[in-house]
Write a protein that binds this DNA or RNA. Structure first.
Lengths: 347, 347
DNA sequence: TTGAAAGCGCTAACAA
DNA sequence: TTGTTAGCGCTTTCAA
């Protein structure tokens, strides 16, 4: 009821209003509202009551300026549509929940100039830390990060030099290990299907590791196909169809992500192709989302939630300092053979 | 190079630093950096150069406090894992890209108390507007929103009274129309499969609309099954299996979302069940993600991206004022029969 | 076109 | 345990 009384004033409430309503100094009100220092139970109760009655919401802008502390963590990711990034966000959220910090998300759409802009924008709020996807940034972005004077964690990739801390997996190694597993299972005529995204460095590195390991085994990718936009499941089907028509004697398809892999799998099953007898399949990411498919796709977990949690932990541990001390946490993705990369099983 | 010189100072740069480096007053520097008022080209160039050399990043906290303007929009959603919300976010991002506003996301996990906390937290940054999912909030949350003195848009639902503006669809109507389509196609023995989330009000309303329309046709839901957590695709399979074993004579399954619907579809196809001849299926959301399934699931588009865009547009149009003027935008979801809700086709 | 002064709403530091 | 004072880094306003 009292809320309505004060809501008439068309000016946001200030500490001063609470101070006057409770008959206590602004400073003491501030202390109560932040659970700081010693305040008698009596005053505390009085202040709390007044604040509640008025419907007072503190002004963090002023607080942050005065205290030179901002409990925000900038999180910069390429996309929200990718499914992978919401999972990273979940990990970050979970971890930061136990701290006073709050994540603020910026999306770059895989565009370096956009990343630069988003970063500038976020740094201008003077956050307590930055979590940013990838190790590749423009020189200007790198300079901003270096000079920011706050902890930085670059995530999801470990193939390169971080500016400060880093939490991720080696996509090069992931590609290599997948190639080794495929070759080890006896597959020889391998096709690759991926995205048309030169700026998705992690996908690129997986592919490089993959071809490198194949080369070591005296093999190479026989055919390739790339897509761009659209529903990944559909694209997976279409690309698989196109590739198998063009190069019918392939015995393995490596997809750069699980969604297109699932599309490929559904296509093969539709056409009555024996998987993995006639053709083996593998994707990347370990999306639990897809667990219910008719056959379990071989994949490799990218440790998304854990990466988020670890990065958030590093920021939380170092908030208030000027760096995360160059911590490097390299996680090891686990290869999951599923049911599409075992020879001598379904054949 | 100059960046390094100044980066040594372990204090963030201020306008004053730029002022001294360029020999121009702080005020003029401020004007240049905000493209404000008349500044001679000569001084402008000088200032810009100095700012760049120093690597100056403005302090928005101070700017916001002084100008009483914050170009942030609070976006409060229940979850990021749901796939639906990232799409809404994309719509919001797209729209706000053309404005000086920037979204800040808060996640509630469908918990009212968490929503309250997140809201309080966000309002304390004095954003230019709030976009919040749903029409159901705690009394405290409603009070905060009412008293915030900024434009509010409640999104995704239109069955209820908004605090200020509203952009969404009627889930009750969506449920009703789906029921009508199902009954109209000749299905009679209908099962429902959904989530165990009493606080997902939109799912609840769809279900209510659904049963209501069935009742009008003299029918009722014959069997129900609810799930909680886990991979939706898997759960869809499992629930479908359980229900069909328990109640084998069902001729239609209505799923509360497309993911479990897809699981159900895959299960039926696996088992060689004739869809929709023997049993019809429908989901909800219109996830393009699933377009590549072996058979196109009947569904209803929830207009997610458009809801995001519209809400963002309303905020952008009303930023700086104290409300969005009670705009109500009710979108109409389009029923998509797909290939699992047509009688006289596959039969 | 430029500059000087005042203050945004809060908190740090000190005093009582 | 409580209060006072002086800013935080910028922008507003007004004067030059």
């Amino acid at each position: 009821m009292t809320q309505n009384i004060t809501a008439n004033e068309n000016r946001p409430l200030t500490l001063r209003d609470v101070s006057e309503a409770s008959g206590v100094s602004e400073m003491t009100v501030s202390r109560v509202l932040r659970n700081r220092g010693d305040v008698s139970d009596a005053t505390r109760a009085k202040v709390l009551q007044a604040a509640k009655d008025l419907g007072y919401v503190p002004n963090k802008i002023a607080g942050a300026l005065a205290s030179q502390r901002v409990n925000l963590v900038a999180v910069i990711i390429p996309s929200l549509g990718n499914l992978v990034f919401p999972e990273v966000m979940t990990g970050i959220n979970d971890m930061l929940d136990e701290s006073p910090l709050q994540p603020v998300v910026g999306v770059t759409n895989y565009e370096p100039e956009r990343e630069e802009k988003v970063l500038y924008e976020m740094l201008s709020w003077r956050p307590s830390g930055v979590i940013i996807a990838g190790l590749e940034h423009t020189e200007a972005s790198r300079a901003m990060l270096r000079n920011s004077g706050i902890p930085i964690v670059e995530i999801m990739d470990s193939d390169g030099e971080p500016i400060d801390a880093m939490v991720g997996i080696s996509h090069r190694r992931a590609g290599r290990e997948m190639a080794q597993a495929i070759v080890g299972a006896g597959f020889r005529r391998i096709g690759f299907l991926g995205t048309k995204m030169p700026l998705d460095h992690r996908a690129r590195k997986r592919f490089e590791g993959f071809t490198e390991a194949l080369a070591k085994a005296g093999l190479e990718v026989i055919d390739q196909e790339f897509y761009d936009g659209g529903s990944a499941l559909v694209k997976g089907r279409e690309m698989t169809e196109a590739m198998l028509k063009r190069t019918p004697d392939l015995d393995f398809l490596y997809f750069s992500n699980d969604m297109i892999g699932a599309g490929g799998l559904l296509y093969c099953l539709d056409k009555g192709i024996d998987v993995p007898g006639q053709i083996g399949l593998a994707g990347f990411n370990g999306l639990r989302l897809l667990d219910g498919l008719p056959r379990k796709l071989a994949t490799m977990d990218a440790c998304r939630a854990e990466i988020g949690r670890e990065a958030a932990r590093i920021i939380a541990d170092n908030a208030g300092t000027d760096s995360s001390g160059g911590i490097r946490k390299v996680l090891t993705p686990v290869l999951d053979l599923g049911e599409t990369l075992r020879r001598g099983q379904a054949r």
